[in-house]
C-alpha cells in the first residue's frame, strides 16, 4: 500500500527537504506511526495528547480529516494525504 503524504515547508526538516513522501497505513493513526518510523520527530509535530494538534490540518483526498473520523479516518492504496499548518494568530494572548 502506498499513500502519498504532502509535507508543508515547515516540516520538511524531517523529510530531508522532500515535499512529499510515501507511507503506509490503514488509518491516519497507523500512517502517522509509519511516517514516524522513517522520519523521526514528525509525529510529535502532528499529534498532542493522543489527538491531532489543534493547529495542524490534515486532508485525505481533499477532505479535512476532522470531518471523516480524525485519526481513525480510513485510508486505502492511492489516497493522497496533505498536511497543512493552520494559518492563524491574532492579538489574543492565549494559544487555544
Amino acid at each position: 500500500m502506498a499513500i502519498e503524504v504532502r509535507i508543508p515547508t515547515i516540516l520538511r526538516t524531517y523529510t530531508g527537504g522532500e515535499k512529499a513522501v510515501t507511507a503506509d497505513g490503514a488509518s491516519l493513526s497507523a500512517l502517522i506511526d509509519d511516517l514516524e518510523a522513517n522520519h523521526p520527530g514528525l509525529k510529535e509535530r502532528l499529534i498532542e495528547n493522543g489527538d491531532l494538534r489543534r493547529f495542524v490540518n490534515v486532508y485525505v483526498n481533499d477532505e479535512d480529516v476532522r470531518f471523516i473520523g480524525g485519526l481513525e479516518a480510513e485510508l486505502s492504496d492511492g489516497d493522497q494525504v496533505v498536511v497543512l499548518p493552520a494559518v492563524a494568530g491574532g492579538s489574543r494572548y492565549a494559544l487555544a
Binding site: P8, T9, I10, F55, P85, A86, V87, A88, G89, G90, S91, R92, Y93, A94, L95
Partner: peptide, 25 residues
C-alpha cells in the same frame, strides 16, 4: 505575504502570532 490586522493593539506580532507562524519564508 501573510497578512492580518490587529484592531485594538499595535501592529506587532503577538505571542500567538509567533507561536503559530508556520511559513518561515
Amino acid at each position: 505575504v501573510v497578512y492580518h490586522s490587529h484592531t485594538a493593539t499595535e501592529a506587532y506580532p503577538s505571542r500567538t502570532d509567533i507561536g503559530l507562524a508556520s511559513e518561515p519564508g
